[in-house]
Amino acid sequence: MRKKIGVLFRKTQKTAYTFERLKACKHCHTYHVLWDTHCEECGREYQPIRKLSASVTRRYVQTRFLLMVLFVCLAILCAKSLPQILIAGGVGILLLALFYWMQKKYGSYERDAQFLPFLSQEQDAIKKSLVHHLEEIGADVKAERYKEAYEKIREIGHFIHSDTIKIRKIMFLNHFILRKDMELELETVTPSTYDKDFVEYLREVIKVQPSLVKKSVLDYARRYKAYILLQENGEQLMGQIAGAALRMRPYIDQYQDLIIEFIDFIPRDRFLRLAKLVHTHRHEGWELLYAATKRRVDAQFAFDPDFAGIS
């Protein structure tokens, strides 16, 4: 068992949308998803990508506007008499006013609409920047700066959801002592295939923050039950997972089979909760569960005062 270190992670930025995390250096044409505020190459401040896109859109509008102004000016220049000049001027002003009004009313739609293709255009740059970050992480790993490595990869993980990243995360995470007060992730590191390290991590996490166990984890547990059981203390883990599932009614509904299977390995306090629940709400569909619960209660906790009253 490797030596684990106690760490305190940097706080991660919470954003509504992933693109909000993307920052750009206008000068170097690079992107940055970490916490630095200024570009390491040129020292200029990073701009949110949205702002960049908005600038592009703004300029585009300006260009369009200027084009119209040019046409109007040419019209005036080609005018051959005073009335013609006046008409050209008047109409021109009218057109420009219309333009301005249109812009005011519908400009925002254009901004958003421009943002999408902008991202498509910039995807290579973004990808390149992410790769650059990964290289940094590699360096960190080499230098055994696991905390930094994890913090960085956590940021990247917002953008790329591949198993590779997840597994990297897990590997870094497994270097740390997990505590209740840490901001831990579970769902976002659940890989698509069975991974030993993940299971190991799960074991640790479940101890400190069982509330992290969600549907994906439960599904994973269900899918790879056999592999987990092969592990040392696999049943215990399954029991803990089942115990974590007890937190929410829908979970109990959905994962009855799991609960029933590993009812004997559910920790006491969790089991107590289950017993109380089952006793209180004998819904339809919970018969098996009630039976299993009763069985264990009768077997193990017949003389437990906490369990009195559950029959």
């Binding site: 960049l52 592009v56 300029r59 255009q121």
Partner: peptide, 9 residues
């Protein structure tokens, strides 16, 4: 595209 837009403007 950022710089292109700048130049054309």
């Amino acid at each position: 595209s950022y710089q292109k837009s700048l130049w054309s403007r």
